[in-house]
Design a protein around this nucleic acid. Structure first.
Length: 343
DNA sequence: CGGGATGATTAGTT
DNA sequence: AACTAATCATCCCG
């Protein structure tokens, strides 16, 4: 505010100077008669120095007098016109305001993440969808999920309060500048159009600040996401029954442990996991089995027995050549199956 | 707590 | 697109 008043008094002072030049016949005559450039400069300097000694009341009086001058409106409009033609025409060229693709991307992400969207529902729904996509079973994810939601809500709250602060600051500043320009338009050629443009410039500046806020919010959300929703970080072992089903399939197809797409789907359904989890499991199992067959020997025997028993139970009548464990002519060595191993 | 087990991810291959 | 091999990050048991 100090700047503003200082600026205004300074300007009105200059206005007063101008008026003094026009109105004071004595000084005009003095300048004409002396004709010395040095005298002129000295005179002007004298007047400038005098401005600082003027009281505010004097200055206001001069300002008022200037405003009431009959030539003022005409002069003002002419000056505005000239200014429009020169300075503003250059600035006017870069007036286009294309929707920044980056800010659009950020907006979309914040919306998708539930940070900038409607209050509660969107966020949790998105998070739940993400959790489900990550493959977590719906029961065990709830605890960490609530933690995640709390953190997300925190980010969201910070985001909104910051945004509000920015918006308030922006409108406050805009108002301030508009008032200032309106005030100055009494003494300087400032057209409403120029004020409008100035407002646009301010908004652009503030939106770039907003973009920074959005960017950092996005970053925070991404970190939170990777911290909480990265499936690796909340890995749960499959339950015993699921592992059993998978192992059963694996060891009964040891010669070719590559389940078809349908088989994977079937296994996934049986184990209450996703198809890609089945694929992961088989990938891991194959490589780990191959790497250290000895270590898996016991397990292999166990499941070989199990499947053998199952096969015997299921096809009791046509049992001889139909055991699934028998076709073993491929990549993986057969388990060292010992029929007498503890049953 | 340390280390093996294990589910997920990733780079590279076929 | 599916697979291998290596690796990561976590689980979990002694």
């Amino acid at each position: 505010m100090d700047d503003q008043t200082r600026m205004l008094t300074g300007l009105t002072g200059l206005a007063g100077l101008a008026q003094a030049d026009v109105g004071d016949q004595d000084s005009v005559r003095k300048q004409q008669s002396l004709g010395q450039p040095q005298q002129d400069i000295g005179d002007i300097l004298q007047q400038i120095m005098a401005i600082t000694d003027e009281s505010l009341d004097e200055a206001q009086a001069r300002k008022h007098a200037l405003n009431c001058h009959r030539m003022k409106p005409a002069l003002f409009s002419v000056l505005c016109e000239i200014k429009e033609k020169t300075v503003l025409s250059i600035r006017g060229v870069q007036e286009e305001d294309p929707p920044d693709p980056q800010i659009m991307r950020l907006d979309n992400m914040l919306l998708a993440e539930g940070v900038s969207g409607p209050e509660k529902g969107g966020g949790s729904a998105a998070a739940a969808a993400a959790a489900a996509a990550a493959g977590g079973s719906p029961t065990d994810s709830s605890i960490e999920h609530s933690d995640y939601r709390a953190k997300l809500a925190q980010i969201r709250q910070i985001y909104h309060s910051e945004l509000e602060k920015y918006e308030q600051a922006c409108s406050e500043f805009t108002n301030h500048v508009m008032n200032l320009l309106r005030e100055q338009s009494r003494t300087r050629p400032i057209s409403p159009k120029e004020i409008e443009r100035m407002v646009a410039i301010i908004h652009r500046k503030f939106s770039s600040i907003q973009m920074q806020l959005k960017q950092s919010t996005c970053e925070a959300v991404m970190i939170l996401r990777s911290r909480f929703l990265d499936a690796r970080r909340k890995r749960r072992n499959f339950n015993k029954q699921a592992t059993e089903v998978l192992n059963e399939y694996f060891y009964s197809h040891l010669s070719n442990p590559y389940p078809s797409e349908e088989a994977k789907e079937e296994l996934a359904k049986k184990c209450a996991i996703t198809v890609s989890q089945v694929s992961n499991w088989f990938g891991n199992k194959r490589i780990r089995y191959k790497k250290n067959i000895g270590k898996f020997q016991e397990e292999a025997n166990l499941y070989a027995v199990k499947t053998a028993v199952d096969a015997a139970n299921v096809s009791a009548q046509a049992s001889q050549a139909n055991s699934p464990a028998t076709p073993n002519s491929g990549g993986y060595p057969a388990p060292c199956y010992t029929p007498d191993g503890r049953l």
